[in-house]
């Protein structure tokens, strides 16, 4: 156990550092029910195979349950986007076209207006 102090809190770094490329898979009950676990494993595998500098992590529910599984992708040179209804085939296209080819994938982006 480490006893953090108030000042220590400010020094804690997030898992994904600024500028790091990432794929986040929504893995709450609804996502998993819709197949997020397989999608997560597929991304992990393909990114390793292609030897890409992209971190794959899980995250909570994005709220668009009708479009699960949801995946957020952020790579250099492109805005970060959320893909919905991601299955094995779409995941594959995201790696090939979006991550490697720097071209967004048609028909799967869900871009909803949210103020945070």
């Amino acid at each position: 156990m480490v006893q953090l102090t108030r000042d220590d809190l400010k020094k804690v770094q997030p898992k994904i550092k600024a500028g790091q490329q990432y794929v986040k898979v929504g893995m709450s009950t609804c996502g998993i029910a819709a197949g997020a676990q397989e999608v997560f494993e597929l991304f992990t595998k393909e990114i390793k195979q292609h030897d890409l500098n992209v971190v794959v992590t899980k995250t909570g529910c994005l709220g668009m349950c009708h479009a699960e599984p949801l995946v957020e992708v952020s790579v250099e040179g492109l805005p970060s986007v959320i893909y919905g209804r991601v299955n094995g085939e779409v995941a594959h296209r995201i790696i090939e076209e979006h991550v490697c080819g720097k071209r967004l994938v048609n028909d799967h982006i869900f871009d909803l207006p949210i103020r945070r």
Binding site: T29, C30, A33, A34, M64, C65, H66, E68
Partner: peptide, 10 residues
């Protein structure tokens, strides 16, 4: 309710 109402029926 299994908590996946977005995927109803479940």
């Amino acid at each position: 309710c299994l908590g996946c109402c977005g995927l109803a029926p479940v």
